[in-house]
Design a protein around this nucleic acid. Sequence first.
DNA 1: GCTTGAATTGAACGGATGTTCAGATAGGCT
DNA 2: AGCCTATCTGAACATCCGTTCAATTCAAGC
Lengths: 204, 204
Amino acid sequence: MARKTGSHSEITGPRVRAAALMLFARDGYAAVSMRQIAAEVGVQAGALYLYTPDKQTLLFDLLKGHMDELLSAWGAEPRPTDPEQQLDAFARFHIRFHLMRRDAVFISYMELRNLTPENFARLEKMRRQYEDALEAILKAGQVSKIFDVVDTKLTTLALISMLTGVTTWYRQDGRLSLSRVEEIYADMVGKAVRRVAKEKSAAV
Amino acid sequence: MARKTGSHSEITGPRVRAAALMLFARDGYAAVSMRQIAAEVGVQAGALYLYTPDKQTLLFDLLKGHMDELLSAWGAEPRPTDPEQQLDAFARFHIRFHLMRRDAVFISYMELRNLTPENFARLEKMRRQYEDALEAILKAGQVSKIFDVVDTKLTTLALISMLTGVTTWYRQDGRLSLSRVEEIYADMVGKAVRRVAKEKSAAV
DNA sequence: GCTTGAATTGAACGGATGTTCAGATAGGCT
DNA sequence: AGCCTATCTGAACATCCGTTCAATTCAAGC
């Protein structure tokens, strides 16, 4: 027995990636065996090697695909001209995009160490590209004196950490709706970087 | 041959935990074998079972120990009366504490899924206890109208995510000193939650 | 209807895994 | 000096791992 009825590489390929994504996110790359992925797809382990040269490349393709999507989705997003509105748009986009891809986000933060150095470097570059998009907004707002940011790089990383953190606790059927969460976070991000009306500005 | 010269359980025990902590953080719980931990200690794999009933318990003890330290360290921290200063103290404490224990922090966020449900629940409880400490500060500030926070629970989680994020990029020999990083983050946290002088308060 | 090639099986490979345990040894106690 | 026990070794257990490959089967093109 071989070749199942109705089997095509255009069908099995995506199913392999979907199964791997789910299992890697749930149990971790190292803890998931090729046989488990195969079982999830409904296939023997050997068949996976029609779709990936090895386990490591399977992981990399998932992470790379996620970053490709992220960068192109942000590129396709309408961009306001005002830095304040740009920041608002970024915060909302980031939350929305990441909440819809929790498995991929989780893996992207946790399984980087399982990549070869070259593959890691490629992803790092893409990640930095995304961070630069936010930093550019902060810099623009600083130039036009709307924002008051001591260090744009540090602030970029701090804001992204805060926004991405939403993926660790948000529940679809929870207390707060997605749009409400978006709103609150976007507000908080704005307050954190916006210049405050002049006052006694001594530190706390 | 057995019993090495100068061997004591008070020495080997901590070394086992230290080796496990380092290796789990570097390669992940599932990817590290008992034989690797043993080799790091300079001992055979079987000897590890004098110090832990099994691998899973070894992980739990590390995570539990970390949370114990965290809660008692925060408990020992001098607590100001003013919510604004309390928040500042919390932010600085959190950054300082977490930056000095990056391995444990990393594991605490990544390896929770490798715990049994009971062990997971015990840690969750401790984590919530820590979060409640921050939320209490936010609530106090809200009552005294110093802070303007829409949802204290959400804000708590957002701030902790932001502060913990520092562990992913901070380098000892980097551009910014620890105290400078502390300062910037504490400032940002303050701005994010402090009530702004009344203005047209329309959202962006 | 036959042929060809893509898709898959199932067995096999060497090696690694967590854990157990009888036996060996060194250090402290008497 | 001699014993005792805490400490550790080294081998063994069954089971799993990622990966390869000849053999097999199905679907499509002629």
